[in-house]
Design a protein around this nucleic acid. Structure first.
Lengths: 191, 191
DNA sequence: GTCTATAGGTGGATAGAC
DNA sequence: GTCTATCCACCTATAGAC
């Protein structure tokens, strides 16, 4: 058994609740009751909900950053990279969640400004990584597409986010897989 | 000036607020204040929030149904149909909203059961229409793709929903257009 | 149908004891 | 650091006058 610091328990549970229920349906009371502390203890670490929201999104971004670095370290093949990237999404949807970024993007207008910025940065970061993979793949001949790789990357990322939302809606992760397969197929050079 | 019945004002405003802020961030007080009535008057028409939620989603579905019938009546060309369909999404995103179905799909776990059912039906209805257009297009040679048209339709719909969310996030409706262009391109006969 | 008044619950947040 | 106690704003919902 590990002795997980309370602050980490708060962040982890808050992330999970936001991914499942959304920002506005996650409350200090939910967190306190499930962790077994009082709401005032959470306010000690995160005086305002905005502080907690930013911390959760920052932690999530750091996790993605590590995962992307791991993918880059394990394979140079752009196609395999995308496959592994899709694997990250599949893990999330299999646990009954959608992406934190996708959830907060729909909650966007109700978010404190500091959280809004984190959400936009999350999107930009994913799209930048994808754009690089796509551009590398096009150069090597693994991929074939026209136009800006950045524009294509944003379309790919949005398609995955949408597929994730639909997959959870119907409790059917094949929706994510088939959407990803289609994308990879159309990005590949014709046989 | 038209004399819009109060019940219609409620439904219209509730729809707009949910599309902008989400189900849980839309309140009876918001509605009452903006319309200029009291919350108890809204409860007269919609005793529980679930009743209002179902009415809004049902009204939205009816609007989409009319729009799809209008598209079907105006052109038999599958490609043009998709283009007009995308036009519906663009109108929404240009008014600073995302699709009601997409919003409620992320709010899904917090929704009353009756609203959940409406959301699933909304997705199914759009996908069924898309599947039919895709299948017709494949038969006529306008489209070229492998596998089930229903599976492809769900991927197309999810991609549009995701693109919409991202387009609003960055206040950039070109994101929706480029995603739609890419889809139409890959559905068309190979280059 | 619309209102006043109110109930009971939950939201984020703070002061101060320990 | 964690607690008790409390604040006030907001939420959905209902009873009953008009």
């Amino acid at each position: 058994m590990k002795n997980v610091p309370v602050i980490d328990q708060i962040i982890d549970l808050a992330q999970s609740l936001i991914q499942t229920r959304g920002y506005n349906a996650m409350s200090y009371r939910d967190l306190a009751d499930q962790i077994g502390i009082k709401t005032s203890s959470i306010h000690y670490y995160f005086p305002a909900k905005e502080d907690l929201g930013r911390a959760v999104m920052a932690h999530y971004r750091q996790g993605i950053r590590s995962a992307l670095a791991g993918i880059d370290a394990k394979t140079p093949d752009p196609r395999v990279k995308i496959e592994r990237y899709v694997g990250l999404f599949r893990e999330t949807v299999q646990s009954g969640c959608i992406c934190l970024g996708g959830m907060l993007a729909t909650d966007f207008t109700t978010l404190p400004q500091g959280v809004q910025t984190e959400v936009r940065n999350f999107f930009a970061e994913n799209e930048a990584w994808l754009a690089n993979v796509l551009e590398t793949g096009r150069t090597s001949g693994a991929f074939m597409f026209e136009g800006s790789s950045a524009v294509k990357a944003s379309a790919v990322f949005a398609a995955l986010e949408g597929a994730m939302i639909a997959a959870r809606l119907f409790n059917d992760d094949k929706r994510l897989v088939s959407a990803a397969d289609w994308m990879l197929d159309t990005l590949s050079a014709p046989r």
